[in-house]
């Protein structure tokens, strides 16, 4: 079967940004393709900064960036990106006195939808898309955290953007809300590109066709979740007792210990998960030794899950 190469939606090269004396991002390069890509990393890894740069909310100090074929460094390029972008910030602010409809309507005006009838039609469409058809007229201050997050997502969807940038979209949600939200995001990923940040490996496994691991402001891995898990192949084993020298050792549900690190010769090896691969990357040896930094191979259509 012939498989066509996927086209890139975002191409970043050498992105660097400092806040005063603190380096937030150092020489970050990655490529984003169609489908859902997870930006995985611990707190303070630089995920929000990177998403803000991609969303044109922040210019980098150095490096080149192409988003949807436009250069956000130029006013025309920035405008072109913003017209095709949906952005959900980490802490989406609301005017609490607004209803869900009024808030999304306000964002729609910011997105240049000035005709009242067409705008209201679009507002209803996006509120329906996130399952809030019955909550349009409710004040935002009366909505639960999950519903507020869906209102913010609806606002990001106004104008049917080609690229969605979502900063920790499920943080603070209870498990049921998280599941519902994932369902919505997975659906949105069919037909557009979604870049979402998270520090939860389960989110990556549940949603993402690609994953970029960011730590300390640098890219530590870029590839598929399966490739990230494969990074830990041969380095995860089970034992009857805690292993002191392991990178991590914890008692699993079956009562035995699951260990990540350098196994002994007679170890009973286990199939690694994305979490194991992530753990080894973040707490493991430096970049040069992993050899996984800035992986250049892009996916082919059919491999992205679309």
């Amino acid at each position: 079967m012939t498989v066509a190469a996927a086209t890139s939606v975002v191409q970043a090269s050498g992105l660097t940004l400092r806040y005063g004396r603190t380096a937030a991002l150092t020489d970050v390069s990655f490529t984003l393709y169609d489908g859902v890509t997870g930006l995985l990393g611990p707190n303070g890894a630089g995920k929000t900064t990177l998403l803000r740069i991609v969303a044109t909310a922040l210019p980098p100090d150095r490096g080149t960036l192409s988003v949807l074929g436009a250069d956000p460094r130029t006013p025309a390029g920035r405008l072109a990106v913003r017209r095709r972008l949906g952005y959900l910030p980490q802490d989406p602010g609301f005017h609490p006195g607004f209803t869900a409809f009024e808030f999304v309507d306000y964002v729609a005006i910011l997105k240049e939808l000035t005709d009242r009838r067409a705008r209201h039609q679009e507002v209803r469409r996006v509120l329906d898309a996130v399952g809030l058809a019955g909550q349009r007229g409710r004040r935002i201050r009366a909505l639960s955290g999950g519903m507020r997050q869906r209102v913010a997502l609806a606002a990001a969807l106004v104008g049917d953007p080609d690229l969605l940038v979502l900063d920790e979209p499920t943080v603070g949600l209870d498990p049921e809300q998280r599941l519902r939200f994932r369902e919505v995001i997975a659906e949105l990923g069919e037909g557009r590109s979604v870049l979402l940040s998270t520090h939860q490996t389960e989110e990556v496994m549940a949603l993402c066709q690609r994953v970029v691991v960011l730590d300390g402001g640098t890219v530590r891995f870029e590839g598929t979740p399966a490739e990230l898990a494969a990074h830990a192949r041969g380095r995860v084993w089970t034992s009857g007792a805690r292993v002191r020298g392991a990178l991590a050792s914890w008692r699993a549900g079956d009562g035995r210990y699951r260990n990540v690190g350098d196994p002994p010769a007679d170890a009973e090896l286990l199939e690694p998960t994305v979490e194991d691969g992530y753990l080894l990357l973040i707490d493991g040896p430096a970049d040069e030794e992993t050899g996984l930094v800035h992986e250049e191979t892009g996916p082919a259509l059919g491999e992205t899950g679309r």
């Binding site: 969303a55 909310a57 913003r82 989406p92 910011l110």
Partner: peptide
């Protein structure tokens, strides 16, 4: 933040 990245 939403206003900053809007086309307006």
């Amino acid at each position: 933040e939403i206003a900053v990245v809007a086309p307006m």
